[in-house]
Amino acid sequence: MNEKDGMLVRAAGIDKIFKRGSEEIHVLQGLELEVPHGDFLALMGPSGSGKSTLLNLLGGLDRPTAGAVEVGGQRIDKLPQRKLAAWRSRHIGLVFQFYNLLPTITAQKNVELPLLLTHLNKAQRKKQAEIALSVVGLTQRSRHYPRQLSGGEQQRVGIARAIVTDPTLLLCDEPTGDLDRKSSDEILQLLQNLNQEQGKTIVMVSHDPHAAARARRTLYLDKGLLSTEPVQ
C-alpha cells in the first residue's frame, strides 16, 4: 500500500454515465471522496442517487466514466480486468443486502470461497473460515446450509465471508436492508465492533438513519454529488 495523508480511499472527479438506448443517465458527476484508514462511513441518499454505483466503483466492480479511484495508493480504475479481480480478492470485503450466499454449500464453505483464491491449503482454509465464523458468533452453525439459517444469521455468514481474507476495506451495500430490527441491530453492532476493535475501514450504503447512526460519519449523495448534510 502506498497511500498519502492516511487516506485509504481517494476518489477524484468521478463521473459515471449509464446508457439506456440513446439516453445517457449521469449518475455521478465530478464526485470527490476521501476515506481515511479506520473510518466507518455511511452513505445515504434517495433511491437511484448512485450510492451502490459509488460502492461498486470503490470496490473495483465497475469503472468510472471519468475520474480516478485510488484505494490504498493503488489506482484501481486503470487496472486490467484480471489484475483487478486479484486485487479485489486481496483488499476488498463485500457485504450484500440479500447476503448472496451460494445455496448449495454450507456456511463454512461459503466463508471459504474467497480463500480458494489464496495459496492456503484445505486445512488452513478451514481454520481461517472457523475463525471468521467465530468472530460473527456462528461457530455452531458452520455446517448448516443457507436455507437452514435465519436472515440475520445469513448476513453474519456474509460478513464472515467478507472478513475472512482480512481485507483492507469493507464495503457494505444495505447490509440491514432485508432484516428485522433485532437482527439489524446485531449486524450493525458487529460492523461497529469490526471497526472499533479491529480497525476495519468500512463504507456502508444505507437508507436507514438508524443504521447510519452507528457509523462514525455520514455523507449524503444526491444528483451525483456528496454533501455532509441531508438533501431537503
Binding site: 470496490g59 466492480l61 480486468q81 479481480a85 486479484a86 463485500l94 448472496n100 451460494l102 474467497p114
Partner: peptide, 15 residues
Amino acid sequence: TAELAVLKALGFTDN
C-alpha cells in the same frame, strides 16, 4: 447469474 457475479466480485477471474 447473481451467484456467478458474486464469485467474480469475490475475486474469481473471468477464466
